[in-house]
Write a protein that binds this DNA or RNA. Structure first.
Length: 486
RNA sequence: GGUCCCUUCGUCUAGUGGUUAGGACAUCGCCCUUUCACGGCGGUAACACGGGUUCGAGUCCCGUAGGGAUCACCA
């Protein structure tokens, strides 16, 4: 059987990182097996529909490098791939189920259902639709049921879950799972508005679209028995199931918004490199073995193996993601980082020649986590320092510092070429003669030029800034100091 | 609470009966160094617990504990 998998999001908001991980594993599996990757939009709940959500979902997926073979806008022979456009299909299948005795009509109102649950709660039993006492096809009888249908009374279709049976299914990740039918609710299949619930639509579409493997989040595990029942009722061959472990907050609960960003779009906007992000997410719950953890998408595809996916949930460890990003950032060319940085630079009102920006990037890229860190981190490369690090000054600018610095600057002025080697030699000779260590002079110079305690090599920095600029900064520093501004 | 699922360093994990239990992030120390990083070297740190099975168990089985998910006319 050829491999066909799908990612089936609801257009109710942005793409969650958990959703991305699910999509990614589907994708890795499909590509590894030479199968098809399908995207299907599950918009059967019109009350939660969000405008543009579908577009946002797809654009986030594509940003991450996930491609689709079939889906809305991608073609395919099993469309339409949006469930609301398949509306008519579902009631037909629900009808089949009723005729075969696997489902039935029910007419209870929301209030009646609520009252039933209250009773059950008081009695200390698990809330579950009570087929024997509620208002449905069985308690009402054929004639009354038909009358209500003819009258157009609101109705739903429920799954008739058999008594006292055991439902068993195999999960690729978890092995054999079994549940007793007495614990399974008579799930609503067709809502009173005529739309199917997830359970019906999902099973019908997976079958019609010839899905071979259902790879989804663990939160679906408890409802899988209902799906198994549905496949059996229809007499359809079942796909294989693989329930992925959850992505967790630091407190081990399901990854959620109140513990930080969870939308893929947020990470994209923060400046994460997509390859780094995908690499990191792919390793949450699975790993191709070996000591290295930096992998290309192709490598991940080549080694992906569903059976090796872990069972336990994985905490979304943001510090490690940050590290992963900096690893990728350092591998980027200055040209690539320039592309990531240029918009942020512009919006910060910084306008420098490209060659200059490129030099700054090359000088500093190993010291940052994100391309746009450079806006702040390298502020002294975009303009004169607006402030000077107090602590650094207190530590580095002491008695005698000025007497050491002034002659050094005079010496720098005599440099025939403003190049690293030349400047270095000049200073080295000067310090040797004085019998003073490099730090004594270089730290004060760093303060004067950058205002900061951290940065790249001082000579390299000075060369990129240029002779005029540096000398100006020295002068201004002394003036400000004399005015007591520093 | 019922049901189901899960459990190796703080975190992500390797490990498929015999390992000094390995790697990565984080953390700590040392080295490199004009600062901060990077890099290099090293350290602290884990098989939840209790029973079995076995010559031998992180690996298999059963309990216990802990955690999580789920119990909608949402997906």
């Amino acid at each position: 059987m050829s491999v066909r998998v799908r990612f089936a999001p609801s257009p109710t908001g942005y793409l969650h990182v958990g959703g991305l991980r699910t999509a990614l594993y589907n994708y890795l599996f499909a590509r590894n097996k030479g199968g098809k990757m399908i995207i299907r939009i599950e918009d059967t709940d019109r009350t939660r529909f969000v405008e543009n959500a579908q577009e946002n979902l797809i654009s986030a997926l594509q940003w991450a490098g996930i491609t689709f073979d079939e889906g809305p806008g991608f073609g395919g022979d099993y469309g339409p791939y949006i469930q609301s456009e398949r509306f008519d299909l579902y009631s037909k299948y629900a009808q089949d189920l009723i005729e075969s005795g696997s489902a039935y009509y029910a007419f209870d109102t929301a209030e009646e259902i609520e009252a039933m649950r209250e009773r059950q709660k008081k009695a200390g039993i698990a809330p579950k639709y009570d087929r024997a006492t509620m208002k449905n096809q069985f308690t009402l009888g054929e004639q009354e049921t038909q009358r209500l249908i003819d009258e157009g009374i609101e109705k739903v279709v429920r799954l008739k879950v058999p008594f006292n049976e055991e439902i068993k299914f195999k999960d690729i990740i978890r092995g054999d799972v079994s549940v007793k039918t007495k614990d399974v609710d008579d799930q609503i299949l067709l809502k009173s508005d005529g739309f199917p619930t997830y359970h019906l639509a999902n099973v019908v579409d997976d079958h019609l679209m010839k899905i071979s493997h259902v790879i989804r989040g663990e939160e679906w595990l408890p409802s899988t028995p209902k799906h198994v029942l549905l496949y059996k009722s229809f007499g359809w061959e079942m796909p294989e199931f693989a329930h992925l472990p959850l992505l967790l907050n630091n407190n081990k609960t399901k990854l959620s918004k109140r513990h930080g960003d969870v939308a893929v779009e947020d990470f994209r906007q923060k400046g994460y490199i997509k390859e780094a992000f995908v690499n990191f997410v792919s390793l949450l719950g699975w790993n191709p073995s070996g000591d290295n953890e930096i992998h290309s998408l192709d490598y991940l595809i080549e080694h992906f193996n569903l059976e090796k996916v872990n069972k336990g949930g994985a905490i979304f460890d943001r510090p490690k993601l940050l590290w992963m990003n900096s690893m990728y950032l350092r591998k980027q060319s200055s040209e690539e980082i320039y592309e990531m940085l240029i918009e942020d630079l512009k919006s910060a009102g910084i306008d420098k020649p490209k060659d200059y920006v490129l030099e700054v990037i090359t000088l500093l890229k190993e010291r940052i986590n994100f391309a746009n860190d450079l806006v702040e981190f390298a502020d002294y490369m975009w303009g004169k320092p607006s402030s000077f690090d107090e602590k650094f000054k207190a530590k580095q600018w002491k008695e005698g510092t000025e007497e050491l610095v002034r002659p050094a600057i005079e010496l720098l002025k005599t440099a025939d070429k403003w190049e690293v080697d030349t400047l270095h030699k000049l200073i080295e000779d000067y310090l040797n003669e004085k019998g003073v260590g490099f730090g004594k002079l270089m730290n004060p110079l760093r303060l004067m030029i950058t205002g900061k305690s951290v940065g790249a090599g001082m000579f390299e920095t000075m060369v990129i800034l240029g002779r005029e600029e540096c000398l100006e900064r020295f002068d201004e520093f002394f003036i400000k100091m004399e005015n007591g501004e520093i």
